[in-house]
Simulated scan of single mutants.
Amino acid sequence: MQLTLRLTEMATGIRRCMYCGDGLGTDIDHFEPLAEAPLRAFDWPNHLLACSHCNSHQKRELFPRDEDGTSLLVDPCAEDPYEHLELVLSTGVYEALTPRGDATIRVFGLNRADLVRGRAAAFIRTISMLRDRVRLLQTDGEEATEIVTSLRDQPFADVLYAMLRYRSLPGAHLVLRGREVVDALGDPALHFWHHAGGFEPRR
Rank of each mutant, 00 (worst) to 15 (best):
V93F: 09
W193V: 11
W44K: 15
V107I: 14
G21A: 04
F199K: 00
I14Q: 15
F63A: 10
T26M: 06
A96L: 10
M1H: 15
A78G: 13
G198F: 01
A184C: 05
V175D: 08
A78W: 05
R15S: 10
S128Y: 04
Y94A: 03
F156C: 10
V159G: 02
D43P: 08
R203Y: 08
A96N: 10
S71V: 14
Y19L: 06
F199S: 00
R6I: 09
V93D: 08
H30S: 09
A50N: 01
D102F: 01
A162V: 14
G25Y: 01
W44P: 15
N55I: 07
L87Q: 02
A189N: 03
I127N: 02
P45W: 12
G101R: 01
S128M: 11
G21H: 04
T91W: 05
L34F: 12
L97C: 02
T98Y: 11
T104H: 03
G101D: 00
V116C: 07
H173W: 03
M163P: 00
R179T: 07
L48D: 02
F31S: 00
P64K: 01
E95D: 10
E95H: 13
E180C: 09
L151Q: 02
S56W: 13
D66W: 09
V74Y: 06
R119M: 11
M18A: 06
P188G: 10
L169Y: 05
G198I: 00
L185Q: 05
T104W: 08
R117G: 11
H173G: 02
Y161H: 14
H57T: 14
F123V: 06
P155F: 00
L97H: 04
V182C: 03
L110C: 00
M10W: 14
M163A: 04
T98D: 06
H47T: 10
G21R: 05
L130G: 00
Q58P: 04
P38Q: 03
G92C: 06
S168H: 12
I124Q: 15
F199R: 04
L24I: 12
P188S: 04
R65K: 14
T8S: 05
R179P: 02
A162D: 05
C77S: 10
R202M: 12
R106W: 02
T91V: 07
Y166M: 09
